[in-house]
Amino acid sequence: MMQEVERGLRLAGTRIVDSIAALLPGALVLLVVLVVALVAAVSVRYLVVRSLRGLELERRLEPLGFRVADWGPSRGPAETAGSLAFWTILAIGLLLGLTALDAALPSRFALAVLQYVPHLAAALVILIAGGVLARFLATAVLIGAVNAGVQQARLLSLAVKWLVLIVAAAMALDHIGIGRTVLLLAFGILFGGVVLAAALAVGLGARDAVGRAIERQLHAPAHDDKLDHV
């Protein structure tokens, strides 16, 4: 009886030691990967912040509408980009480290997340590019509309800005595969509705004004009848 118990305890102990022995290299690799990722993350954050400050990113972004005040009291765009890079590298390091543990669930999770990262990064780039483009186009439309004497210049500019932002958001969400069908349908209905509404508004409400505008274009006065500003 005692021998049975002793053998059972020995076997259990051996299993525990074996499990620990099997886990130890993986844990050690996880630790090493985490330390390397931490060092890499700190270095990349330092480089990103330094280079973006050198490029005077804040000054260049401000005219495009990305004001320093929007980034919080102590964070500029350079620091934010640095932090983003830091946490991204650290998260990738953690996921890579988890695969070293050779545990089925964490490994599958890590692989799934890692496969998703490029899509997330692309979606982020689409969103940022959309934001910059929206602000640029909104400013261009605002100035152009003011110079053309359009009283509702700001409304036009806002419409362009939100149109570009919505398109960018739809593209980003489509890229990461969230609600693809619903999104496409909603966007199609919304965009089609806006165009139809605008066409009806112009066709019914401003038919005469549009006619006069086309008439003016077709019978524009000769060049030398206009004031030569130069």
Partner: peptide, 28 residues
Amino acid sequence: VHDVTLDAERLIESYRLGYRELRDLWTW
């Protein structure tokens, strides 16, 4: 060579519209 007429009030209106809509931009 030819007479030129300019409507000062329309020019002023253009200026006022510009001030109203582009003032924020001009602060840069």
